[in-house]
């Protein structure tokens, strides 16, 4: 408690930003698990880039920078982008990766055009809109934290309520459909949850880096566990921890941007997990292989020495 008061006296902003980053990491880490397990890691990237023009349009229409309005615009555009990808794949012969690249760059391009139009319009209120491209965590205010908390909470609660349905959708979509679950609807719902996680992170981390916030914690978590519930929990924890540590590191040194530091922390967890995790980790793997080779050698040696005994 003393410690906490000491911190508030030092830097109220740091606490607000850390809290926002932690919430953001929790939500995107947990929901990112589903994107990773569905092999849709790049969908997050497309959604975050597609969300940009939504922010510009929302601002152009309302002239407001209220987080809820901008988040709503971003979500709508991100969702349209995801829908465009799904429709292109379903209706044309264009493959998933091409559709993804097309939508991502088209929406991002529209976003950039709109931003430069807004900047040239001389609207006094426009300053800071471009933070959504590269993110600027320092601009997170208390009201942003509240927005992240409420919307992220809704997304996480939805995920928990539909736990069994989403698990089945990801593991075996055909079987899910055969027993009567509306897989297309569940698919849209899951995509919508991802959209929420992504647009909440745009302000802090930015469109360009946001997909890493979704993917990295989940990839790291997968290394440590073979259980879906633990994986979601761990990914949420990694996300939160990356958010807080990235914020603190960047605030301790002037000139270090917060969003990229958060991403670097998250990817550091991935690196450590890939090397050190038991069972799936590289070190563990090497040791096991060496052990296997040695026991094979011993067995082979014994075979050569006394073949009669082994052949009984």
């Amino acid at each position: 408690m003393d410690n906490f008061l000491f911190l508030t006296r030092i830097d109220y902003t740091l606490i607000v930003v850390s809290l926002g980053a932690a919430l953001l990491g929790t939500v995107s880490g947990a929901l990112g698990t589903y994107a990773v397990l569905r092999r849709q890691s790049l969908l997050g990237d497309a959604i975050s880039h597609a969300a940009l023009p939504g922010i510009a349009v929302a601002f152009l229409l309302t002239g407001s920078k209220t987080p809820l309005i901008l988040v709503f615009g971003a979500a709508l555009a991100g969702w349209l982008g995801a829908l465009a990808i799904i429709s292109i794949v379903r209706l044309t012969r264009i493959k998933y990766d091409s559709a993804l690249a097309l939508v991502l760059s088209t929406f991002f391009g529209i976003g950039l055009v709109l931003y430069s139009l807004i900047q040239r319009s001389g609207n006094a209120n426009q300053a800071g809109l471009d933070t959504f491209i590269f993110g600027q965590a320092a601009t997170i205010l208390k009201r942003d934290v509240i927005t992240i908390g409420i919307l992220g909470g809704i997304a996480l609660i939805t995920m928990l309520i539909l736990w069994k349905e989403l698990k089945l959708l990801i593991f075996d979509e055909g079987f899910a459909a055969s027993i009567g679950f509306p897989t297309r609807l569940l698919d849209i719902l899951l995509t919508s949850l991802l959209v929420i996680a992504i647009v909440l992170g745009l302000q802090a981390v930015g469109a360009v880096l946001m997909s890493a916030m979704l993917i990295a914690p989940a990839v790291a978590a997968r290394q440590w566990t073979n259980k879906l519930n633990l994986m979601v929990l761990l990914a949420a924890a990694f996300g939160a921890f990356a958010g807080v540590s990235g914020t603190i590191i960047s605030s301790s040194t002037t000139g270090l941007p917060t969003g990229p530091m958060i991403i670097l922390c998250a990817t550091l967890f991935v690196g450590l997990s890939i090397v050190f995790a038991p069972n799936r980790g590289l070190i563990w793997d090497t040791i096991r292989q060496r052990k296997n080779r040695r026991s094979l050698k011993i067995a082979a040696g014994r075979l050569l020495e006394e073949p009669q005994q082994e052949s009984e």
Binding site: L37, K164, K167, I170, F171, I179, F181, N226, K227, L228
Partner: peptide, 22 residues
């Protein structure tokens, strides 16, 4: 996929369980 044998077999009950119920 991160799950075990019993969990996969129990998915066969999901249709009878319906929505949300675990």
């Amino acid at each position: 996929f991160p799950t075990n044998v019993l969990d996969v077999v129990m998915m066969g009950r999901y249709g009878a369980l319906g929505w949300i119920k675990r």
